[in-house]
Design a binder for these strands. Structure first.
Lengths: 210, 210
DNA sequence: CCATAAAAACTAACTGGTTAGTTAACTCGT
DNA sequence: ACGAGTTAACTAACCAGTTAGTTTTTATGG
């Protein structure tokens, strides 16, 4: 017979992810996380030490998982431009699995990592590190024009995160009918970003003397 | 004679901008805003009705001001590609004047406009509307390749907002020395975004049959 | 296999500090 | 004397974290 599975910390983390993504750290309510996870609040403090502890555990997992996938792309052997395509597609797929990711990312950037300890910050840093590495490979191989890796990181992933996090507010705005916010498919947007990034990194067709 | 309007609501708004940008709506403390503005808290409730009222007033102003500048670019006569350059430069300049803008923008996207009323949401919608209009002009004039205006909006401005809002967290990460987060100048990043956006919108040099 | 004790998992109710918002009284220019 | 502007003190609700106690699981020795 199936064990009543006691209280799974994973269920708490899943509930916390939704709450933190929807409301941010300050707006999140521990009671609400506990209720969502159908767990006594004290259990939450039993498994994680505090609201901060829970938050950091969640983020560390999330960042580590995402960075792992990006590093796999970096280590693979494929044309440089294809790797960049994959970075974008991989982030989109990651968000598809973890819908709460972009909102948390946006909030964390907005408050400058205020709730993160050293370890979690290091896990976060692995994201730009992996993407930057891929760009640098391409630059060194002369497949890409000389581009600061961090610039490429921001210009290729910020729109993806922003666009995906913005689904709710775009719907609100579209609802007002004051702007044409016609929703194209997310897939189309991802393809747009892949093309834009390729064109941005591609070496000029006709070499120019600077 | 102009009343010296003893407590200036503007001073409250300025203090609120900092507080909301740093902590978000839920994390912001009314008492702290009052203290920062060197104003009795009750005055804040006298001029604005509530924390929400203050927040919405601030955002409405901000969005309206920014959208006005973008619309001025749309209405000017200049080559389409130059207008796009100006959009990016103008947003960077706007953030330079209103350092709190990007953080608030990120947070507002993250919580799907939860605290915004119809009017404020409309003011926000004017931003993508103005930028989208500029892109559409260029597409119609065959100066740009056919691109959904909202896609162009996100790919040109999300990195700017993200990069500028992220100054604090980048500094934190750089401090860890686990990634090379070497800070190039903001101006360089803006130029990078201008070039990237131009290349992304430019029509292919050699026409292709699709 | 059982008895038992310790450890882990769990709960309901509580606590104390915090926070948005209120109020009643005061100032001062017209 | 009136009303817009201002203040210190107050309040009711909220919320992270605690506690005291119960039940379930696991380890141990006979």
């Amino acid at each position: 017979m199936a064990r009543p599975a006691r209280v799974s910390p994973d269920r708490i983390l899943a509930a916390a992810a939704l709450e933190f993504a929807e409301r941010g750290f300050a707006g999140a309510r521990v009671d609400r996380i506990a209720r969502r996870a159908r767990v006594n609040k004290a259990m939450l403090y039993y498994h994680f030490k505090s609201k901060d502890g829970l938050y950091r555990t969640l983020l560390r997992r999330m960042f580590t998982l995402a960075a792992g996938r990006l590093r796999a792309i970096a280590d693979a052997s494929a044309p440089h431009a294809d790797k960049v395509d994959r970075v974008i597609a991989t982030m989109a797929a990651f968000v598809d699995e973890h819908a709460f990711f972009p909102a948390i990312m946006l909030r964390e950037v907005a408050d400058g990592g205020a709730h993160l300890d050293r370890e979690t910050l290091t896990a976060l840093a692995a994201l730009p590190a992996a993407v930057g590495g891929i760009v640098q490979q391409g630059v060194r191989a002369r497949a890409f024009r000389d581009t600061p890796p961090m610039f490429a990181y921001f210009s290729m992933l910020a729109p993806v995160i922003f666009y995906l996090a913005g689904a709710r507010i775009r719907k609100e705005i579209a609802h007002l009918k004051v702007v044409d916010m016609r929703e194209s498919s997310t897939d189309d947007f991802i393809r747009h970003m892949q093309h834009a990034t390729r064109r941005s990194l591609a070496r000029a067709r006709h070499a120019r003397t600077s």
